[in-house]
C-alpha cells in the first residue's frame, strides 16, 4: 500500500520539523508531502533542509482547504493509495496515525476521523468552540442520521476513492465538516477512532475567536445548501 502523509503548513517554523521527524519515525514507509500554504516565515527554508520529503509551495496563502485540496490533487496524480493528513502545527500525534489507516486497510471505511471526543482525553479545544462542534454534531446527526463526535477534527485518513471524489468539488474555506457531508451523500463509509490531541504548539489557528462565529455560519450555510441540493438529485 503506497501511503502519503499530507502535512499542510502555514507559518509553522517552530513545529514543522518536529512533525516531520515524528512522522518519519512512526510511518517510515510513507512518503511525506508538506504543502507550504504561502508561509511568510522561515517554513520554506526549513523544508528545503529536510531530505526525503516532498514539498509543494503555494504562491499565496490559499487557506487550509486550498492546501488540502492541493495535496489531494498531488495524491491523485501519483499512484498513492492511502492518504493521511497530519497538521503542521503539532496538534495531531503522528504516533497515532497508524491506527487511522487500519480501518482503510480493512476496507471498513473510506474516511477515518481521529476524534478527541470519544475518550475525551488530551486537549479538547476551548469552551465556545466545543459549543460550535456540538451544534455541528447535532445537525449532522439530524441530517445524515449518523453520529460524528468530532466533525472539525483535521486528523484524518482517506482512501483513494474519497480523495478523488473530494478533489473534484472541494469546499475551500472550512472543509472538515463538509467533507463528511459530501462523502456521506455519495454513500462512502466514515469511521471515527479515538485520538488524543495537543494544544497547538505554534502558529495561529486558521479560525480565530472572531472568526469562529463566521466559520459556524458559513459551515451551516454550506451544509444546508449541500443537503437541500444533494437531496433533490
Amino acid at each position: 500500500m503506497k501511503l502519503l502523509v499530507l502535512i499542510p503548513a502555514f507559518n509553522e517554523e517552530n513545529t514543522i520539523s518536529d512533525v516531520i521527524e515524528e512522522t518519519k519515525k512512526n510511518l517510515p514507509e510513507a512518503d511525506i508531502l508538506v504543502v507550504n500554504d504561502g508561509s511568510t516565515d522561515r517554513t520554506k527554508q526549513i523544508l528545503s533542509n529536510h531530505k526525503n520529503i516532498k514539498a509543494l509551495h503555494l504562491p499565496f496563502n490559499m487557506g487550509i482547504g486550498g492546501a488540502i485540496w492541493t495535496g489531494f490533487n498531488f495524491f491523485c496524480k501519483k499512484d498513492y493509495e492511502l492518504l493521511v493528513r497530519i497538521d503542521g502545527d503539532g496538534q495531531h500525534p503522528p504516533a497515532q496515525a497508524r491506527s487511522l489507516i487500519e480501518p482503510l486497510l480493512k476496507k471498513e471505511a473510506d474516511l477515518v476521523i481521529g476524534s478527541r471526543f470519544i475518550k475525551r482525553e488530551g486537549y479538547l479545544s476551548s469552551l465556545h468552540r466545543r459549543g460550535g462542534i456540538k451544534l455541528l454534531n447535532i445537525l449532522t446527526a439530524f441530517l445524515l442520521k449518523k453520529e460524528i463526535t468530532d466533525n472539525t477534527s483535521g486528523f484524518r485518513a482517506y482512501s483513494r476513492r474519497a480523495a478523488n471524489l473530494l478533489r473534484k468539488d472541494y469546499p475551500f474555506d472550512y472543509p472538515e465538516p463538509i467533507e463528511v457531508y459530501l462523502l456521506s451523500q455519495k454513500g462512502l463509509k466514515i469511521k471515527e477512532i479515538p485520538t488524543e490531541m495537543k494544544e497547538r504548539e505554534g502558529g495561529v489557528s486558521s479560525i480565530s475567536l472572531m472568526h469562529s462565529y463566521y466559520y459556524l455560519i458559513k459551515v451551516l450555510l454550506t451544509i444546508l445548501v449541500n443537503f437541500l441540493y444533494g437531496g433533490k438529485k
Partner: peptide, 17 residues
C-alpha cells in the same frame, strides 16, 4: 487562480525532482 496555483506548485515540485 486557485487551480493555477495548485498546478504551478505541483509542476515546480516535479521540476526540482
Amino acid at each position: 487562480i486557485n487551480h493555477l496555483a495548485m498546478t504551478l506548485s505541483i509542476l515546480e515540485e516535479s521540476l526540482s525532482e
